[in-house]
Structure formats: structure tokens, C-alpha cells
């Protein structure tokens, strides 16, 4: 399994470059153009990353979760889950940056190769920010009766989180 994972990025890069080469695209110039756009992306997301790290650090360092959900700790311990995974699962559908900041906190405290580190990575990688996407797309065409869209989207997120837990437990 880890061999397969190791092959994906190199093969992907090889394929993209080779395909571009064969189609006679100016690959070097295209790369520079894209890299420049990437730099602008980083510049644009920096304020929101800073804002979220600020808020998340205060919230997690306050230990409020440990105090309020202390009763749950024995159950979570049995599953070898730190309590920080709860706010991550909660904010994932609302803000990708916020959940990224929590994942980063988990890496700092427990390491990326811990069970919770792998779980957080999988959750971050498997789902998108449902509530944000619905607001953006329905808002753009002025639809306010969204019927069962939100509950179905959140249901998919929930299944994604549960599936992440099961899959990470089984594979690692």
C-alpha cells in the first residue's frame, strides 16, 4: 500500500510533463506562468490562514474541550483519539482553512505519523467545505430554496469522516 502511494506523485508528474511535451506545449513557460499564479494564491490565502491560526490556537490552548468533554475522554482514549479531532470534524464543512489550522496543530502536538495525525490528514483530504460551496453556488444564481441539498451534503461529510476513521484503523 505504501509503495502504491509512493508511485502516485512521480507517475503523475511524469505523465503531465510527457503529455505536455508530446502536445508541443511550451512546458517550461507554462510552468513559470502557473508558478507565478501559485505565488499569488499563497499571497491571497495568507490573511485567512493567519486569522484562523490565531483563533484556533486560542481556542485549543484554552483546554475548554478537555474540561467540557472530559467525560468523553475515556471513550476517546480507547479509540486512541485526542479530543482535538472533534472541532476539526465540526469545522471541516464550514471552513477548509480552519480545519487545516487544526490539522497543523495536531501535527505539532502528536506528529503527522501518529494515528490522529493520519486520521486528520485523511479527513482533510477526503471532503470539501460543503456549507461554503453551497452558499457560493446557490448564491450565484439566487436560489434560496435548496431543498435537501444541505442535509445530503453533510451526510456525505459525516460518512467521509467515519470512513476515514475505519480506513485509517484498518490500513495502518
Amino acid at each position: 500500500m505504501s509503495y502504491l502511494s509512493k508511485m502516485i506523485i512521480p507517475l503523475f508528474v511524469l505523465f503531465v510533463i510527457f503529455y505536455g511535451y508530446k502536445k508541443k506545449v511550451l512546458i517550461y513557460d507554462s510552468f513559470l506562468e502557473g508558478a507565478k499564479e501559485g505565488l499569488i494564491t499563497v499571497f491571497n490565502i495568507f490573511p485567512s490562514i493567519l486569522a484562523m491560526v490565531f483563533a484556533i490556537n486560542i481556542f485549543l490552548n484554552s483546554n475548554i474541550l478537555e474540561t467540557i468533554f472530559g467525560v468523553l475522554t475515556p471513550i476517546l482514549d480507547k479509540l486512541s483519539l485526542p479530543i482535538n479531532i472533534l472541532p476539526m470534524a465540526f469545522v471541516r464543512p464550514i471552513s477548509g482553512t480552519a480545519s487545516l489550522a487544526i490539522m497543523n496543530e495536531i501535527f505539532v502536538n502528536f506528529g503527522p505519523d501518529s494515528f490522529v495525525g493520519r486520521l486528520a490528514s485523511t479527513i482533510q483530504g477526503c471532503t470539501d467545505t460543503t456549507i461554503y460551496v453551497l452558499a457560493l453556488y446557490f448564491g450565484s444564481i439566487k436560489i434560496n430554496k435548496t431543498r435537501y441539498a444541505l442535509s445530503t451534503g453533510l451526510f456525505a461529510d459525516l460518512i467521509g469522516i467515519i470512513a476515514s476513521f475505519i480506513i485509517v484503523s484498518l490500513i495502518f
Binding site: I8, P112, D113, I159, G160, I171, F172
Partner: peptide, 18 residues
């Protein structure tokens, strides 16, 4: 991480489930 890309497969599987 000793194996940063190891979560590609787990993320794809979880995505399929979701």
C-alpha cells in the same frame, strides 16, 4: 513525516465512500 504521501490512498478511499 517519514512517509508524507501515505495518506493519498486512504483519502481516495474515504472520498469514494463519502
Amino acid at each position: 513525516s517519514s512517509n508524507p504521501e501515505e495518506i493519498i490512498i486512504t483519502a481516495i478511499l474515504a472520498t469514494i465512500a463519502a
